[in-house]
Nucleic acid binder design. Structure first.
Lengths: 206, 206
DNA sequence: CACCTTCCAAGTCAGTTGTATTGGAACCTT
DNA sequence: AAGGTTCCAATACAACTGACTTGGAAGGTG
């Protein structure tokens, strides 16, 4: 077999070129030629690695989800080098990681929004979200359960509801941050405010 | 002067045709020809009323904002025919009106998302949101202030923060509703849960 | 009635799009 | 070294886009 090329590596580079363009012009504004040019390759090469534009979009979606996931995990691992983190700390770092506080995350969110605006109209593109969110919610709820056991959260809270509220709240604040209604730092403050209310036993910990 | 045609009426009809298409195919998927066909007119007629596609998009954006605003006000007025509503009731009806609980509202939200996904990349399209949200937040905060005075909300709450949280929360829940993570009714329940927590003095009122 | 402005349908145009085709270079295997 | 497969650049193509031009119908006004 001739000419060995790392398919996956090329596809990832193309996906990242798409990423850069989609964050500025949206998914519809990203033509194959433009993505190829941004990736520094010819249209022919790009087409050799993706049979259709849809193929490229789907692959890039998965690739970007993986990157975001890896980034959050790295952040979580790096934030607590020695001391094991409390549920409060874990949640706070995780939620902050979803806010557009730095340029990298901000760009990633813009791409997610480009996919989101297509997913609300296309059931096929909704699948990744539909499958990925429940585990996250379960993890949130488990953290909250631990916090209740530690006496940091009132026992009468509905943890499944609180988990969903945390997620929705953070996303909503991101929305209004990107619309320039308030600064990203303000969104972070509001998440802290909400978390402080939830963790009444340690409301003094910011 | 010859041939009087109600310009505004024609423009509104075109805007509503755009609305129908954009909710299914997005703003980029709505070509002038398709909008004209949906409106039951020729491309030439459409172009007579809008100098450019951008013109049409901007007009439709304003028109749709007005419609949504009017619908919320009508709902508020109709929900309490005789008895003057409490702050809790007002907030609840208003927030419920922002959730995709019926097909009409759902379609409207899909159009808003189409505009939103463009606004996050185009500062010019951010202006309407940037200007429109603060008054809404102020109104929310005023309602909350009244509720505090009535002893329905704890005095140590940050009302500005709570107002923003309510808005962000509702938007975030709408997001996950449209992604099929949960049902619209579940989103409504979660809003009620949050409101019930906020209005501790009357947590029994659903 | 004659006139003139508004209105609008049809067609044209240059540009861009995703996809398909072609031809040959690169390179591993036998 | 021969052969066959992978790789990829160039080109072509049909479809569609937004914008523009043209010609004439509609219908008040003088």
């Amino acid at each position: 077999m001739p000419k060995r090329v790392d398919h996956e590596a090329v596809r990832q580079e193309i996906a990242e070129a798409l990423w850069r363009i989609a964050s500025q012009r949206g998914l519809d504004g990203a033509s194959l030629r433009e993505v190829a040019h941004e990736a520094g390759i010819s249209l022919g090469r790009l087409q050799h690695y993706f049979a259709s534009k849809d193929d490229m979009l789907v692959f890039a979606s998965n690739h970007i989800s993986e990157l975001a996931d890896r980034q959050i995990r790295a952040r979580l691992a790096g934030a607590f080098p020695d001391r094991p983190p409390t549920p409060y700390e874990l949640l706070r770092v995780c939620l902050r990681g979803m806010l557009p506080l730095d340029d990298n995350t901000r760009t990633g969110i813009l791409v997610q929004i480009a996919y989101f605006s297509r997913a609300v109209r296309d059931a096929r593109m909704r699948e990744p979200a539909r499958k990925g969110i429940p585990p996250l919610l379960t993890w949130f709820a488990e953290l909250l359960r631990t916090a209740v056991d530690r006496g940091e959260i009132a026992a009468d809270r509905d943890l499944g509801a609180e988990a969903m509220l945390l997620l929705a709240l953070t996303d909503g604040l991101t929305t209004y941050t990107l619309l320039d209604v308030h600064e990203a730092e303000r969104a972070a403050e509001l998440v802290d405010y909400h978390l402080g209310r939830l963790f009444q036993g340690r409301a003094d910990t910011h």
